[in-house]
Design a protein around this nucleic acid. Sequence first.
DNA 1: GTGTGACTTGAAGCGCGATTCAAGTCAAGG
DNA 2: CCTTGACTTGAATCGCGCTTCAAGTCACAC
Lengths: 160, 160
Amino acid sequence: MAEPLLDIAEVAERSGLAPSALRFYEKRGLVASSGRNGLRRTYRPDVLDRLALIACARGAGFTIAEIARFLVATPDDTGLRARMAEKARELEEDIARLTRMRDGLHHASTCMHEPLVACPDFKRTFKGPVPPVTGRARPDGRRLAGVAASAGRARTGAGE
Amino acid sequence: MAEPLLDIAEVAERSGLAPSALRFYEKRGLVASSGRNGLRRTYRPDVLDRLALIACARGAGFTIAEIARFLVATPDDTGLRARMAEKARELEEDIARLTRMRDGLHHASTCMHEPLVACPDFKRTFKGPVPPVTGRARPDGRRLAGVAASAGRARTGAGE
DNA sequence: GTGTGACTTGAAGCGCGATTCAAGTCAAGG
DNA sequence: CCTTGACTTGAATCGCGCTTCAAGTCACAC
C-alpha cells in the first residue's frame, strides 16, 4: 500500500486522455495531482473515476468551467443544485432535438426527393421550436445545442 | 407577387441569426441570396425553412461543411445516404449519453453526498462506455459528443 | 558522471463558428 | 449635393478545448 499512486503517463493511458489534457484540467481545477515523483505528477487511482465523469459531462456539452463548479459542489449548495436541475431540463430539450434529427436523417436516407432538402416530410421534422439560443451572438459561445446560455443581447442592434 | 423577397435584415430578425452569420453561411454555400437591392442581399422567403434546418443540424452537432454537403444531396447520392444513416446511428449514441447525463443530474440535485461527486449512484451513471473519441487529440477537433470523427490515432501511443 | 527519455513549464498555435472592425458603397431624404 | 444609416467586403479577432513547441529538469541505468 506504499504507493497506489499513478504516474501521469499511466493515467493518460488508462483514461484515454493526453497528458497535456491532464495538465490542462489540473490548471482549470478539474483534477488534482496528489504529489510528485521528481517532476512527474502522480495521481490517486480514483482520479480515473473523476476523469470518466468529466468526459461524460464534456460529452453532454458542459464547458470546462461549468464542470469545475459542479465538481466542488456540496449538498448544501442549493444554488448549484438548482442549476443542475435546470441543466437536466436543458438536456431534455437537447435530447428531443437530437431525436428529431435522427428521425429526419433516417427518413432522408430512404426518401426520394429531388434535393433531399425539398422533401416535405424531412422539412416537417424541423418545423418544431427552433433551438433556443443557437446561433445568436454571445461571446461566451455555447456549442452543442444551446445548452446553457440564458441567451439575450445581440450586438448590432440588428435584433428586434 | 412582385417582390416577396426579404431583405437581409428581415431574414436576420426572423431567423434569429445575426446578419454576419447569414453572410457567413452564404460564403460556405449553405444558403443563397437571390439577388440584390442595391448592395443589400435579398432572399426568397423559403430561406427561412432552410435556416431552420441548418439551425437544427448545427444543434445536433453537424459541422457547417457537413451540412453544406447534405444540402446539395440528391436521391442518387448513395454514399451520402450511407453517411446520413451513420450519422443517425451516432446520434443514437449521443442521445443515450445525454439521457444518462440527465438522469445523473436529476439524481445529483437531490442526493446528499458530501462532495456530490462522491455519490456512488452518481458515479455509477458514468461507468458506462466512456464516450468514444471525446478528448483525444485529433486536429479536426470534434466537439459535441464525439459525433462525427472516425476517431483513431493518438499520438503518445497512449493506445487504448 | 553521463546519457537517455519521459516528464516539466509557459506560450503559442489550431480548428471551428462566428463576430467585429475598417473602409467602402449605395438609396433615400433634406 | 451632402448626409444619414444600413448595408457591403475581406481581414482580423474571439472563445473554447486542447495540442504542440522550445527549453529545462529530474530519476534511473550505465
